[in-house]
């Protein structure tokens, strides 16, 4: 398992110590979960969901938030210019 590649796919910075630790532990965990290959599931009709709910729909409509809630969302921005969210540059 290529830890650096997986960390890159995960957008996750690892310290050197973490990388060493993960390189040792993740294969052990994968070996443990690999036990599942012992189970014959050829006759299982796989279901991804546990409830009987199907096609839960709602009307797709925009609604306005009040000023107090709007302010809360804007206040949560880590960086902003006025009321606009400031994001780091994409091209540098």
């Amino acid at each position: 398992m290529d830890i650096q590649r997986i960390a890159s796919l995960s957008r996750l910075q690892l310290t050197e110590d973490e990388e060493t630790m993960m390189a040792a532990q993740l294969p052990e965990i994968l070996a443990y979960v690999g036990k599942l290959q012992e189970v014959d599931t050829s006759n299982v009709d796989v279901k991804a969901y546990l409830t009987t709910a199907t096609n839960v729909l709602r009307v797709d409509e925009a609604f306005l938030v009040d000023d107090a809630h709007r302010k809360m969302l804007i206040d949560a921005f880590p960086e902003k210019t006025g009321d606009a969210l400031k994001v780091p540059g994409v091209f540098e």
Binding site: R11, L12, Q13, A76, F77, P78, P88, V90
Partner: peptide
């Protein structure tokens, strides 16, 4: 770390790695 939470350092892609790391 873009819309809420703690923002990472660097350009966009770097900031993801940094904030999550």
């Amino acid at each position: 770390g873009i819309r809420y939470g703690t923002r990472g350092d660097g350009g966009l892609n770097e900031s993801y790695f940094d904030a999550r790391g």
